[in-house]
Design a protein around this nucleic acid. Sequence first.
DNA 1: CCATCATAGATAGTTCCACTATCGGATAGC
DNA 2: GCTATCCGATAGTGGAACTATCTATGATGG
Lengths: 227, 227
Amino acid sequence: MRIGELSRRSGVPVPTIKFYVREGLLPAGQLTSPNQASYDSGHERRLRLIRALLDIGGLSLAAIGDVLRAVEDPEQPVHKVLGVAAKRLTPLQGGEPGPELDDAREEVAELVERRGWRAEAHGPAGECLAGVIVALRRAGHGGFVELLDDYAAAAEPVARADLDYVGRRVAREDLVEGVVVGTVLGEAMFSALRRLAHVDASSRAYDGEGEGGPGGGDGAAVHAAGG
Amino acid sequence: MRIGELSRRSGVPVPTIKFYVREGLLPAGQLTSPNQASYDSGHERRLRLIRALLDIGGLSLAAIGDVLRAVEDPEQPVHKVLGVAAKRLTPLQGGEPGPELDDAREEVAELVERRGWRAEAHGPAGECLAGVIVALRRAGHGGFVELLDDYAAAAEPVARADLDYVGRRVAREDLVEGVVVGTVLGEAMFSALRRLAHVDASSRAYDGEGEGGPGGGDGAAVHAAGG
DNA sequence: CCATCATAGATAGTTCCACTATCGGATAGC
DNA sequence: GCTATCCGATAGTGGAACTATCTATGATGG
């Protein structure tokens, strides 16, 4: 297919497709003549993936490019690709070093030990978590950190489900793409579910247990007041 | 305190503080003379909250401003404030309408019913979830949608924990701020924990059950390959 | 075979966002 | 008085993600 049809099928404007090719996010079409190239369904799929990571996952084009190029490169061993993915999928707050951050790191290490997780507490994910803890404390909501264990307990089955999804894939590219999609879009999925569950939990807490179906509250329910 | 000290204590540059005041994110200092103003610990706390929502939560300044101004305004009833928060904390993908989106909406409604949630499936959170489902399908990862129930089951205890945290607050402003912080920073916290749990689950799945502590794998472990 | 349309590739421009720089005049505190 | 700091205002910066325009070339249809 030509670029016009690719644009129509993916919903991405032609100049934007050209821009993505320039930025190395999308391989160029197969040139059939000096000013004519043909694109296939692989391009279409890649384009949809880019838009999902961009719009839903909120990744930057630079991050998407790094990840996708690593996925494409057959030279890269799988674990390297996953390393790139882990780094680029993490906002990586870092923050200014200090005793606060050291304390938070220590708490993360204790949590990992407490739950018996086989994970490095000082890897990208652990650093990210420590950054969040510091930010919560700095924002005056240190109490929220007490929920860490509850959150960790909920994260375990989610991680197992993710791995289960990824485990069903065999081809290298499919595998890696599964990890990326699971990490990025799975996060968006959980986030939406969490907000839905907030409405439910709030409804039960403030409207009383005995009342009827959803939406019966008069506004006390958290998040229920949509407009 | 004067603006210089506020800057030193919060780590935010003076011109940036002035910028936040101009944008209505931070109340102006108390003028003690035509060109002298004094700031208090409330300003400092607010400033830290802004930075947390911006850096960790990834909210835009516009969204932060809407939420904080609603929180500040004593005219606004609590449920209105929570409505504003819910809307601004949601990326609100919307996406183009079509049969795909209708199908996804239907699935969300079925999920809500299946779990017995007292929540409107067509509120902001439900719409957001439907958008994610559509994006997953469009990106060629419709299979991931099968994890919806696992994710929903994990979201329930998290939502209960959040509500429990919020429930401990009594003052109106504290309550609302708790919701905002819980929703935004709690998401970042869960996200980091989920990635940590990925490392663990991957280690167990690929490195064998019997091996020793963390980090022992040779790279097959998801995300374990940090830089 | 010729008019019309789409395309490749290149360069430059736009919009939004989150700051950052500079300035003129006033004040604080020694 | 002197210097550092401050207020308020205006203007400028840099990055991100496009978008517009242009030229030369080729495809398509009557």
